[in-house]
C-alpha cells in the first residue's frame, strides 16, 4: 500500500473555515472538503504512530473524557490511545461502573461530566441521537463514538482513510457494503462519507436487514451478494450481531453465510485487486471466512485499526483548536 500525497493546498479554506463545527456527531451533511481536511490532518498521525517515539504534546494539559454508555473494547481503546499520544489526560467512564445504573438520567450524567471541565467528550450510547442530545447541553466539543443505529463518524473516516491509502482517489470507486445495514451506524457513516467523496456505494443485505428508502441516501440496494460484488473496488463486510442471527432476522448463521458470507469464491467476483474491509469484531466463518479476512495484500482489516487511532487523534486535535487558541481557530 502506498502513502498518499501530502495535503494539497487550496482543497479547503484556511483556518477554522476548514472545519467550522464544534462537535463531530455525524458525517451526514459535511462538505467534501471538511471530510478531506480531517483525512489529511490524520496523515501526520499515521506517520507518527509508525515511529518508535509516538508522543506529541499537542493536547498537553487538556482533559478528555471518554463516556461510554454502551460496552466497547476496541473503540474505547483506540480513543484512549489517541488522546494519550497527543499528551492529554484521558479519563474513561463506562456505563457498567457509572451512576447510570443508579437511575441518573443521561442529561444529569452529562452535566456532571461537564462540571468537571472536560476539554472534549467522546461519547458512545445505545440510542440514536443521544450524542447530539448531550452535545446540546455541554460546553465542550463532543465526539460521537457511536450512537445507536445512527452514526459512527470516526469509523466512517478511518474507513475512508484506509481506502485512500490503498486506492488513492475516491472518484469512480465502487464500494460494496454488505451485512446488517438496518441496524448499522457504521454503514450509515460510511454511506454519507463515501458518497460525499464521490464513490459509488452499493449496499447488500437480506430484506429483513435493509432499511426503508435507503436509495434516498444515494446508494444502490442489492439482495444478491454476487451481483453486488461485480466490479467492486472495495468490499466492506459488517458484523452480524449474535442476537440477530437466529430466527428473527435471518434463519441461522449458516444460512446467512450461504447467502452473504464473503468466501474466496465470492471475492473473485469483485475486481482482482478489491480491498476487503471489516470494522470488527469479526464472526469468522459467518460473514467472512478466515482465509479472506487474513488474505495478504487484500485484507485491510488491521490497517483499519491503525487508521482509527490516527483519525481519532486528528479529530481530537481539530475539535480542540478553538479552546487551545490555535491561530486561525480562536
Amino acid at each position: 500500500m502506498t502513502s498518499p500525497q501530502s495535503p494539497a493546498s487550496g482543497r479547503y479554506p484556511a483556518g477554522s473555515a476548514a472545519f467550522p463545527h464544534r462537535d463531530l456527531t455525524g458525517l451526514a451533511g459535511l462538505a467534501p472538503w471538511e471530510i478531506l481536511f480531517l483525512l489529511d490532518e490524520a496523515e501526520q498521525w499515521v506517520a507518527l504512530n509508525r515511529q518508535p517515539q509516538k508522543r506529541s504534546e499537542r493536547l498537553a494539559g487538556l482533559t478528555i473524557i471518554n463516556a461510554f454508555f454502551e460496552n466497547s473494547t476496541r473503540t474505547l481503546l483506540s480513543f484512549e490511545i489517541a488522546g494519550k499520544r497527543l499528551g492529554a489526560d484521558v479519563v474513561n467512564m463506562q456505563a457498567a461502573q457509572s451512576s447510570v445504573k443508579k437511575g441518573e438520567t443521561l442529561i444529569d450524567t452529562a452535566m456532571t461530566l461537564n462540571a468537571m471541565h472536560a476539554d472534549a467528550m467522546v461519547i458512545r450510547h445505545q440510542s440514536s441521537g443521544a450524542v447530539r442530545l448531550i452535545a446540546e447541553k455541554v460546553d465542550c466539543p463532543v465526539l460521537n463514538a457511536g450512537d445507536g443505529q445512527h452514526e459512527h463518524p470516526t469509523q466512517g473516516l478511518l474507513d475512508a482513510l484506509t481506502i485512500r491509502h490503498a486506492k488513492g482517489d475516491f472518484g469512480g470507486l465502487r464500494v460494496t457494503i454488505c451485512g446488517d445495514i438496518l441496524h448499522s451506524r457504521v454503514a450509515r457513516s460510511n454511506i454519507h462519507c463515501l458518497t460525499t467523496l464521490g464513490a459509488e456505494v452499493r449496499v447488500c443485505a437480506p430484506p429483513s436487514l435493509m432499511p426503508a428508502e435507503i436509495e434516498a441516501l444515494k446508494v444502490t440496494p442489492f439482495h444478491d451478494f454476487d451481483a453486488a460484488l461485480k466490479g467492486a473496488d472495495v468490499v466492506m463486510m459488517l458484523r452480524l450481531q449474535q442476537e440477530r442471527m437466529s430466527g428473527q432476522f435471518i434463519p441461522s448463521p449458516r444460512e446467512y453465510r450461504h447467502l452473504y458470507g464473503l468466501t474466496l469464491d465470492r471475492l473473485a467476483k469483485a475486481k482482482p485487486d478489491a480491498l476487503v474491509m471489516h470494522p470488527g469484531p469479526m464472526n469468522r466463518g459467518v460473514e467472512i471466512d478466515s482465509n479472506v479476512a487474513d488474505l495478504p495484500g487484500r485484507s485491510a482489516i488491521t490497517t483499519q485499526v491503525e487508521m482509527g487511532v490516527a483519525i481519532r487523534m486528528a479529530c481530537l486535535d481539530v475539535l480542540t483548536r478553538r479552546s487551545r487558541g490555535v491561530e486561525g481557530w480562536a
Binding site: H150, P211, A212, A216, L217
Partner: peptide, 15 residues
C-alpha cells in the same frame, strides 16, 4: 414510520 427520515436517523421504524 419506516422511510427516508427513520433510515437517516437510525430510528426503529415500522411500515
Amino acid at each position: 414510520t419506516a422511510g427516508e427520515m427513520a433510515t437517516r436517523l437510525g430510528l426503529p421504524a415500522a411500515p
